[in-house]
């Protein structure tokens, strides 16, 4: 059975049939690994993040990397055209990807991207929102919940101030933005289920 990796971080969703799963995985890791490193570098620049224990930093990054990348790559999902652009630059229609067996997760990604893009966040707002997403005190396995909570609260306050400053007339914008967080959790869970079905040896 052909392996389909309909992740925009992959070069293309379907490789040549003669490629082994190991080769497909090695190719994917060429784009996946640098993307994860960028998320780690981003985290290091969040004021206060490096002061957390190393284990809590790792726990937050393990749990939140997918969500950070989802926010970062939301623009790759063109809702109007119903297409996904992969990092290779190639664009695939949602219909074609569904034809390869990808369904529910992609539909939910499109819904999320549409809602996020409709908020028209500035780069600064998007960066701060991403920091709030990453520093979530309710991730499983956090050792010092209090420290993570304090950091997340300060980031949320900064985000609220920033969003209110850029759109003082739209008081619901901040609430709408925070409501994207449970959507990201849902996507994260769906993505984890997909990963479990694709065992990497």
């Amino acid at each position: 059975k052909d392996i389909v990796l309909a992740c925009p971080m992959n070069m293309c969703p379907q490789d040549k049939p003669n490629k082994t799963p190991q080769e497909i995985w090695e190719d994917f890791s060429l784009s996946f690994t640098p993307a994860v490193r960028e998320v780690v570098e981003f985290a290091k620049h969040i004021p206060g993040f490096s002061a957390l224990s190393e284990n809590d930093q790792v726990t937050l990054l393990k749990a939140g990397t997918f969500e950070v990348l989802t926010v970062r790559f939301a623009s790759l999902f063109n809702v109007k055209e119903q297409t996904v652009t992969f990092i290779s630059g190639a664009t695939y229609s949602l219909e074609a990807l569904k034809g390869m067996g990808m369904g529910g997760l992609l539909d939910t990604m499109f819904e999320f991207s549409e809602k996020l893009n409709s908020l028209e966040l500035t780069a600064e707002e998007l960066g701060l929102f991403t920091a709030v997403v990453l520093v979530s005190a309710d991730r499983s396995g956090i050792e010092n919940i209090n420290s993570v909570e304090l950091l997340q609260e300060s980031l949320i306050r900064a985000l609220r101030a920033l969003v209110s400053k850029s759109n003082p007339c739209d008081v619901s914008r901040f609430t709408k933005l925070l409501l994207k967080m449970p959507d990201l959790r849902t996507l994260n869970n769906m993505h984890s289920e997909k990963l479990l079905s694709f065992r990497i040896d």
Partner: peptide, 27 residues
């Protein structure tokens, strides 16, 4: 694997990046 993140080798990449392991970085 019961943990999808382990399946991806995510923790290993994260720990190396956190430690600033320059040898692991692409040029």
């Amino acid at each position: 694997f019961s943990d999808p993140a382990s399946n991806l080798g995510l923790e290993d990449i994260i720990r190396k990046a956190l430690m600033g392991n320059l040898e692991e970085r692409p040029e």
